[in-house]
Design a protein around this nucleic acid. Structure first.
Lengths: 69, 69
DNA sequence: TAGTATTAGGGTAATTAGGGTC
DNA sequence: ACTGTCCTAATTACCCTAATAC
């Protein structure tokens, strides 16, 4: 096989994201609907999530917060 | 006028498409059966998929906020 | 020609979507 | 405002064997 493109783009299923955050998969769906989480749809309508984005949100690198305003 | 083969038409195997969408290869087969995805058949009956179409379905329209729908 | 991985089929569990409610 | 749960319908995942791809 040979399909190594410059865009691997690893995706996670709703249940996987839910497990990482320790929430119900339904909650992950709400985050997607609210635009808080980027979602990619399968052709059947199921959502897939970007692994990199999830990892960032999980606190991989605590970036600057602008919560003081 | 027109060149004979302007583009070589890159094809992807079922497993490659499945990896990109983070689904099972069988699911890709169902999409082809349902007419949601164009499939080219090998002489032995195996399916191949157009890379351009797959990439278009994956990221053609980046991320559309579901919040405003 | 042989060996290994992948795919096509078909069937049956497991997830997910969506709305609604607590 | 946020999350977990109940419900139904739809989609997807996993099981198998035989055929194809390389």
């Amino acid at each position: 096989m040979s399909a190594q493109h410059p865009e691997p783009e690893m995706l996670l299923t709703p249940s996987e994201v839910a497990t990482l955050f320790r929430v119900d998969p339904k909650t992950v769906t709400r985050w997607a609907k609210a635009g808080k989480l980027t979602s990619i749809r399968t052709l059947g309508g199921h959502r897939r999530y970007r692994e990199a984005e999830v990892r960032d949100l999980l606190g991989g690198i605590p970036q600057q917060r602008e919560a003081d305003r």
